[in-house]
Computed example of a mutant assay.
Amino acid sequence: MDEDRATRRIRKDETSMMTRKTPFLIAALLGLWAAPAAAQQTIKIGLVAPMTGAFAAAGQSHATGAEMRVKEINAAGGKYKIELLVEDDASNCNQSTNATVKLITQDKVQAVLGAVNSPCALAMVPITQRYKVPQFTSGVGTAITQQGSEWVFRIAVAATGQTKVLSEFAVKTLKHEKVAILYSDDEYGASMANGFKAGLAALNLQPAAMEIFPRNDQDFTGQLTSVKRSGATALYAVGAYTASALIAKQAKQLGMNLQLLGDTGNASPKYIELGGDAVEGAVLVEPFTPADPDAKNQEFVQRYKSQFGREPDGWVAEVYDTVGMIHEAVTKADKADPKVIRDHVAAFTEGSPYKGMLGNWAFDKAGDASFPLYKVQIKNGAKTILAR
């Protein structure tokens, strides 16, 4: 009997132990059977821009616009996060091409943003075409999207589009028929100058004067003297915003009372800062302006200012939207692949656009984007909207 009781006690103890262990065993088995959580994957985007040198303000706008959107996307979670890799080309086209090769072959980026300067963006086109990686540039030089590459997209309104709008506004709205053109001797300057000349021709007008200057020149006295002799009442100065600001100052020193005109390159806050009183009254075109009171626009302005301490410009908005396009492409296809990004962006049309801060994005067969431009005037050191 004692043996029977001992046997029953052992069995009872074993049953009790099994009962206590069961939840742990089940939990362990569930842990083994449960599907592992999907690992977050990375989209690598390279940016080639002048972070130093005379064009650094433009490079900073590109970098901060991209950084702002990357932070928002990564904070939202999801399967795909973004890693932004920035290369400083200092507006040197050799550095632009070297940086592009590095980003593609070593860093394995799926998309490249840049370059900012048209000559450098043009130099990058054969590289992105060879490696089949989409390139997104704000360079407005006409030749950039005329190289037969299906891998390049212009995320700014092209030279012909900008100058058509600006020349028509100068003549029809501002009532200036004697407009002089002063432009830099590079792809950007030539494209914009020829575009503006064509815009005047469409209105049966010719430039009052058409003067060229070396890209890095700082003395424009000779060209401005020719402009003064021409009897021009308005001046379209195209080049770096640094050069345009200097031209405005030197024109004022020469006693010239001209209506200054500028494209998106002069819409940088740096143009106002460097030009001071000399750029007061200048009329510019730009794709985005902090002066727009629209609630969505102002919310974007405040978010940007809270992070970077200044107002955003058109370059910020263009790059911000572009990062969004790239992320959308990868997320929809569930594949971080250069061709996936290229095909997705190329499919944006007026009937099926990408909706971003700049409105509805669409690209033509050459890769050129199109969207409306604001016409703004500098008054008391700030921008005021004249029309859109």
Rank of each mutant, 00 (worst) to 15 (best):
Q298S: 10
T160Y: 04
K197M: 06
F136S: 08
F153V: 14
G77D: 11
L260W: 03
K355E: 14
A159H: 00
E350D: 07
L166H: 00
D89I: 11
Q135D: 09
T145G: 06
A208M: 05
F220P: 13
A346L: 00
D321R: 02
P353H: 09
H327D: 05
A66R: 05
K102A: 12
M192A: 06
A248N: 04
V279T: 09
N98S: 13
K383A: 07
G141D: 01
P290D: 14
A267V: 08
W361I: 00
P353Q: 06
S96P: 00
N266L: 14
Y304I: 07
G189T: 06
A366G: 01
K249V: 05
G381Q: 07
L200M: 04
I247C: 04
E280V: 05
H327E: 08
D13N: 13
I272D: 11
L30Q: 08
R215Q: 10
I341V: 14
E328R: 14
I10G: 00
V125E: 13
T105C: 03
V283K: 09
L32T: 10
T64Q: 15
D89H: 10
T160C: 01
T349K: 09
K79N: 06
A248P: 06
Q377M: 09
M17F: 14
A28M: 14
D219H: 07
N74H: 03
A121Y: 08
R310D: 07
L284E: 02
P119V: 05
T289S: 14
M51Q: 12
E299K: 00
K355S: 12
I155V: 15
D321L: 04
K375R: 15
P119W: 01
D263S: 11
A49T: 14
D88P: 01
A193I: 00
P50H: 07
K228L: 03
G276K: 06
T137D: 13
H327K: 00
A143C: 09
P50W: 01
H344Q: 04
T264K: 03
T64R: 15
L235D: 03
A180Y: 07
A111F: 10
E14Q: 13
C93W: 01
P353I: 02
V48D: 03
R130N: 11
I385S: 07
K305F: 08
L113F: 12
N216D: 12
F55L: 10
A251P: 03
F169S: 06
A295F: 11
K21N: 14
G359A: 11
V285F: 04
V171D: 13
P312W: 05
G367P: 00
A282P: 09
F220K: 04
R303A: 15
E168T: 12
G114W: 04
I144H: 10
D219I: 02
F363A: 02
A333K: 13
A66S: 11
A346D: 08
P312A: 02
Y304C: 11
R154Q: 13
C120N: 05
P214H: 04
I82A: 06
